[in-house]
Computed example of a mutant assay.
Amino acid sequence: MIDDATRYQLLKLLTERPECTQRELAAAMGISLGKVNYCIKALIVKGLVKTDNFRRNPNKGVYAYLLTPEGVQEKAHVTVRFLHRKIAEYDALQAEIAALRREVDDLAASGLDAGMGAA
């Protein structure tokens, strides 16, 4: 099973650069070539991606990865889920930063921060 972050990133890259090789996709995503191959095969089996070779290219092994209409719809759903997760992470980070600022302010108010730089 492909996690949402990987699925989102792969579908996004395939939309932007359908002619990318699996090696280029792996490098762009920071994952192994084997994982890219597995993910693309899974997306093809699910009917979200199809392959098409460039007929005019002298290298007949060059393929383009094209999102099917179902793939475009899945990309939209995954993008929404990914966005919600990132917003939740952002909100949690903001709350953590606010708590740390309060803690620093409390330390400053109590005069404890004056000696902290000497350690």
Rank of each mutant, 00 (worst) to 15 (best):
M1V: 06
D3W: 06
A5F: 05
A5Y: 08
R7C: 02
Y8P: 01
Y8Q: 02
L10I: 04
L11W: 05
L14D: 00
L14G: 03
L14Q: 04
T15C: 07
P18H: 14
E19F: 08
R23K: 12
L25F: 03
A26H: 08
A28H: 02
M29P: 01
G30C: 10
L33H: 14
L33G: 10
G34K: 03
K35S: 01
K35Q: 07
V36P: 01
V36N: 03
C39T: 02
K41S: 13
A42E: 12
I44D: 03
G47W: 03
L48N: 09
L48G: 01
V49H: 01
V49F: 01
V49P: 05
N53T: 10
F54H: 11
F54C: 09
R55T: 10
N57L: 00
P58D: 05
P58C: 09
P58K: 07
G61L: 09
Y65I: 03
Y65K: 06
L66Q: 11
G71K: 07
V72D: 03
E74V: 01
E74R: 02
E74P: 01
H77E: 14
V78L: 05
V78I: 15
V80L: 13
R81Y: 00
F82P: 00
L83I: 10
L83R: 08
H84P: 00
R85A: 10
K86P: 00
K86Q: 14
K86H: 09
I87K: 14
I87F: 11
A92M: 13
A92L: 15
L93Y: 12
L93R: 15
Q94R: 15
A95V: 11
A95I: 07
E96P: 04
A98S: 15
A99V: 14
L100Q: 14
L100R: 11
L100S: 15
R101K: 15
R101H: 09
R101S: 07
E103Y: 13
V104A: 10
V104G: 00
L107T: 00
A108E: 11
A108G: 08
S110D: 13
S110W: 06
G111L: 03
L112N: 06
D113V: 09
D113A: 13
M116W: 06
G117L: 09
G117V: 07
A118R: 12
